[in-house]
Nucleic acid binder design. Structure first.
Length: 290
DNA sequence: TATGAGCGA
């Protein structure tokens, strides 16, 4: 920057933009836009302070491209004559195409606690009671009890043998023959003899190989978790706990892997891993309680 | 702050 005697009156460079730049603009006459006229000539008159603090007038003349105008649909032309409303009433023609509204709009989440959708609850009619009245047919597939609980809520669920053991596995010749053997029913690959591969554990429940991730930053969402964990192997589910009232992340989540070994590797690699300024905690999850 | 939501033969 050139230095002369006047320079001492000036603010230092670090102060220029913040304090002196824009703030005095309100002293200037408003920007004027004239046209475009029938020849497409548009004039913009603006006022600014120059470096010495003098008010200067800047006139910009441009030709609006006729092509652009011709592209406007009839409807668009018509809309230009609409009366402005709201804050836009005070705007110059063409000064701004969009407005920032300060109007508060309250969004109602239909499933939110306390909202209308919730009001039907609490009238005392549980599913089980409706079932007893014949409205819902609810039979537990694990214990066979009627009208009491769904299979997933069965109190004997964890005592029950895995589904696979209920099905008789065909012997090799029947399975490979397909329809020719036995009753001719389809045998899924997982049920065929020799399907079990040593070292590869079957996925019986969706909640297996579940990894808990804590100390997530507030704006980490499920896609982010997936991106991070999928490098270790097939991920069957990701979940980030969200506060139902505020909608913000509660800072922890779960990732389920198809294969246990992948989950193990993810835990070993990512536990203590810095992510989004935070140190992740990655551990085996204890099974969900419900 | 700190271990998940909701669906339904």
């Amino acid at each position: 920057m050139a230095s002369n005697g006047l320079a001492t009156n000036k603010l230092r460079w670090g102060e220029l933009e913040e304090d002196d730049g824009e703030d005095l603009d309100f002293l200037l006459p408003p920007r004027q836009v004239i046209g475009p006229d029938e020849n497409g000539i548009k004039k913009v008159i603006e006022y600014k302070f120059d470096d010495e603090g003098n008010k200067v007038k800047i006139t910009t003349t441009t030709r609006v491209r006729k092509l652009a105008k011709a592209r406007l649909s009839k409807r668009a032309v018509e809309r230009r004559s609409w009366a402005k409303f709201g804050d836009a009433v005070h705007e110059d023609v063409g000064a701004r195409l969009t407005m920032v509204s300060t109007e508060e709009i309250l969004l109602e989440r239909p499933r939110a606690p306390g909202s209308k959708a919730e009001e039907n609850k609490g009238s005392g009619d549980s599913l089980a009671q409706m079932a007893k009245g014949g409205a819902v047919l609810m039979v537990c597939r694990t214990c066979g009890k009627k009208g009491d609980h769904w299979t997933s809520k069965c109190p004997y669920k964890d005592l029950a043998a895995p589904v696979e053991t209920f099905v008789d596995k065909p012997t090799g010749s029947e399975a490979s023959a397909g329809a020719a053997g036995g009753k001719g029913s389809y045998v899924p690959p997982s049920m065929r003899a020799g399907a079990e591969r040593p070292g590869v554990e079957m996925r019986r429940r969706n909640d297996e190989n579940s990894v808990r991730v804590t100390n997530l930053s507030e704006d980490t969402r499920e896609p982010d978790l997936l991106e991070l964990f999928r490098t270790f192997g097939a991920v069957s589910r990701v979940y980030v706990a969200i506060d139902q009232k505020t909608g913000v992340s509660r800072g922890f989540g779960f990732v389920n892997f198809v294969n246990k070994e992948d989950a193990e590797r993810a835990i070993n690699k990512l536990n203590g891993y810095g992510y989004d300024n935070l140190i992740l905690r990655v551990e085996w999850a204890t099974p969900r309680t419900n």
